[in-house]
Design a protein around this nucleic acid. Sequence first.
DNA 1: TTGAAAGCGGTACCAC
DNA 2: GTGGTACCGCTTTCAA
Lengths: 331, 331
Amino acid sequence: MPTIIDVAREAGVSFKTVSRVFTGEAHVRAETRDKVRAAAARIGYEVNPAARALRSKAPRRVALLLNNPSLSYSQSTQIGALLATQKLGSQLVIVESLAALQEFSGLKGVVACPPLSNDLAVTTYLHASGLPFVRVGAERISDLGDKIGIDDRCAARDMTEYLIELGHKRIAFINGDPQFDVSRRRRAGFEDAMSHAGFSKYAQIVSGSFSYESGLKAAEDLLSSETIPTAIFAANDEMASACLAVAYKRNLRVPDQLTVVGFDDSPVSRAIYPALTTIRQGLKELVRDAFMLLSDRLSGDDVPFHDIVHQHELIIRDSAGPPPKEMVRND
Amino acid sequence: MPTIIDVAREAGVSFKTVSRVFTGEAHVRAETRDKVRAAAARIGYEVNPAARALRSKAPRRVALLLNNPSLSYSQSTQIGALLATQKLGSQLVIVESLAALQEFSGLKGVVACPPLSNDLAVTTYLHASGLPFVRVGAERISDLGDKIGIDDRCAARDMTEYLIELGHKRIAFINGDPQFDVSRRRRAGFEDAMSHAGFSKYAQIVSGSFSYESGLKAAEDLLSSETIPTAIFAANDEMASACLAVAYKRNLRVPDQLTVVGFDDSPVSRAIYPALTTIRQGLKELVRDAFMLLSDRLSGDDVPFHDIVHQHELIIRDSAGPPPKEMVRND
DNA sequence: TTGAAAGCGGTACCAC
DNA sequence: GTGGTACCGCTTTCAA
């Protein structure tokens, strides 16, 4: 494992200069810095968090800004954050609001998760404060800061196309809180697929708020209407699980008489019957990478902001099947 | 923050001796060691993980042995483990079986979680290997190793007594996998309370396996019997959530017509409607403390094995209420 | 069984 | 802007 001394030799500078580059100190000529970076990359140098933590006076404290209504979402996020900060040797604080964030002193950087990652006040504050930050699952509400996430629109389109392939036509979409950017994107993906198949007139869209309760209400509305859908696509697993409950209540067997699918691949999706067909977005890895990105930024990278897109995955379980025969003919 | 040098001064030895004591090195006289420990405690010394990680050749790698059917259980456990190892500066590996554990070399210690913490082969192997280990939620299948957990029997008794106070008499208990020790303990607590109230003849006990599916089946059995219970106590939240689904299906309003309670205070318990009344066991803290305990053991403590019992807590939410009037009279 | 010296891989503070 | 020196808190090696 190479050290800064090796890098210094490789780059032809003193080891102190190497240290400067990796702490993001200001007074290094751009040319020298690039030379050092190149040398480091060439020999595969990585900073040793233990050594850094030992000597630095102020701890490298980074914050995870997280206030999501879904507990399982929050848990996966926390695991990802912990994994990354352990590797990077930085101290992690978890805060739930902008106000709480502002109270913390000595922060070196912030990773923001939905819905706060799309809050204009948050983005504005972070930018104004000069604090490096990474937004997870964020829309381009501004070009400030690094972004990382999946292509929600594409994921929702994939799921909808899967339902269409199964033979569904009358498909309902239970959207999340329309204030969340992610809701807009997932809805757009649903609409893309429906209109592409020429099924726009069979599409129904109702709004929830990502909570189980809201899913209950939305499902009740959908399943008590005149023409009930043969498939329901909920914008997260919690709401999908609510659909299952309502389906039971109404004696609709899933997936034989009704297909229900979710989004997130959260633990609930496997802890219910039937297990949910859903979209996996690898939240743990997403957040881990967000912290890695933040760490690069902390090291004084002055490159343009990144916008990293992870691959999603369609997870097929037991809650989706072909529509019941009699309903296919009958539209 | 005091260092080993301060401890050395306080204890009247060289700092090297202090280092020896805290690394658990063999060649220190017992008397000297106690003196050093006392001095350290007096001035509030704690090892600096960064400094240790920097200098030590072999990483302090510890393992979390975890293979639990409940995903939310596993997630909480992982967060606790990550939190602790971050603080202690040790490297964490998560393994799912005894075989996987054996393949790992250079392990310094192991924390085992249910059900593996109650597996005789695991305990025997760990003891034989001489590896320090802590068992979470473990029964006294042997007196080997440290143990940490809650008093499951007492917790189940508390919950049952709460139901009895609400006015319930005909109470059913859905047990977890009878092979798990924890199931036996929770069942015993249920029986304690029922017999103490003189309700033994109204008690029904069915076995599940901690999974949602098993809860579904158990609930179906219970609710299709001649005399259905007014309350169901499930040995974990997953099975309780299954009860809710079955209740919906049968048009039993919870908690008006049927009370359902769970155990664990897992994320699901809040992600369903109605939110579950349950027992909180603070799993995250439990596991965190397990690693702290392991760390002490790694430092060469030669004290008798600990058996630490954490406090549980009854969390009252919306899924429990008094039994319906007509059913109280009618038994 | 105990102690002295060296050094782990970096950062802080000060010269130049 | 860049380099030198001291040193962070601990463990390792070796000598006593």
